[in-house]
């Protein structure tokens, strides 16, 4: 009888990195982690500048999207890239609300098959939210204002989905 089972081979992992890393007895890892957090916090000022630039770039892409025509596709790609970078960085510097808004916008773009007035309206709400957070420098989850912003975006997306479901 022939054995039709797929061939599977297992390779032992020599894990050479473990031989180069030693355990430091008597030292709390929190100390090391706090030191690394501190090294990142030093970049906070630069992030503030990048955040402002990103919001300006996203607003510019939004204007291109509204114009329509041949430049729309490139503007959407550019906007998604900036939003993606922003969602990946903002939370590290105390702006989780920016990460949430950016994440919502990226997911909306990823799931949208067309760019019509309806999609532009939803994206525009996200851009306005980012502008508001940037202008007011809303850190953390934004408290009640942050909740209101995110609920507003969720409602707009739910409404969009309902209108676009067959």
């Amino acid at each position: 009888m022939s054995d039709k089972r797929p061939k599977v081979e297992f390779v032992d992992n020599p894990n050479p990195i473990a031989k180069k890393i030693r355990v430091e007895q008597g030292r709390d890892p929190k100390t090391l982690i706090q030191k690394a957090d501190q090294a990142v916090r030093k970049l906070g000022g630069e992030f503030e500048e990048i955040f402002q630039q990103n919001v300006a770039e996203i607003s510019k892409s939004m204007s291109e999207l509204k114009k329509g025509g041949d430049g729309q596709s490139a503007a959407l790609i550019e906007m998604r890239k900036t939003l993606h970078d922003l969602r990946g960085q903002a939370g590290t510097f105390g702006y989780p609300l920016v990460s949430h808004v950016g994440d919502s916008a990226c997911k909306f773009i990823d799931h949208s098959e067309t760019v019509s007035a309806n999609e532009i309206e939803v994206l525009n709400m996200h851009v306005d939210a980012l502008k508001a957070i940037s202008a007011a420098k809303i850190k953390g989850d934004g408290g009640d204002v942050g909740k209101e912003l995110m609920n507003g975006l969720r409602k707009v997306i739910v409404k969009y989905n309902a209108a676009n479901s067959t």
């Binding site: 599977v8 081979e9 297992f10 390779v11 032992d12 992992n13 894990n15 990195i17 473990a18 890393i21 890892p29 090391l32 982690i33 706090q34 690394a36 957090d37 090294a39 990142v40 969602r87 990946g88 960085q89 903002a90 939370g91 590290t92 989780p96 990460s99």
Partner: peptide, 23 residues
Amino acid sequence: KPVSANAIYSRMAAIVENPRRFV
């Protein structure tokens, strides 16, 4: 992302502590 020092440290520790064999 967003990354934190704690998250990176824990992934590096996992690689040292729980090496998985290859398939």
